[in-house]
């Protein structure tokens, strides 16, 4: 085979799944008087970080009620119990800190 001959080879990549649109929740008009859950994903000192977020709200937006809530289990597992509680009792969520 000559140096400039073209050859055919196969693509080594696997097959990715279809991307399916997942609509996000409508945003709130305001946070005043609302309950915001600060969700601790229990990873790398996230709780220490979220306590500071809570302190920021108390200082700058005291009308916002914040609840610090650790997830029920390890962050790699879905947590329907916690999500249901927040849906029932809260208006918004701030999750931290992922990697």
């Amino acid at each position: 085979m000559a140096r400039d001959d073209k050859i055919t080879v196969l693509n080594p990549m696997g097959y990715p799944p279809k991307v399916t649109h997942k609509p996000l929740a409508p945003r709130l008009e305001t946070l005043d008087g609302r309950t915001v859950y600060l969700v601790d994903c229990r990873f790398d000192d996230a709780d220490v970080f979220l306590k500071q977020v809570q302190a920021w709200f108390a200082e700058h937006m005291p009308s916002v009620r914040t609840i610090l809530k650790p997830i029920s289990n390890v962050y790699t597992k879905d947590d329907p119990v916690t999500w249901s509680e927040i849906k029932a009792n809260g208006d918004a969520a701030i999750i931290g800190v992922g990697h």
Partner: peptide, 12 residues
């Protein structure tokens, strides 16, 4: 929590 439970969410 955002797309399934309809709770507006921000992630850090």
């Amino acid at each position: 929590i955002d797309h399934t439970y309809g709770v507006p969410t921000v992630a850090f």
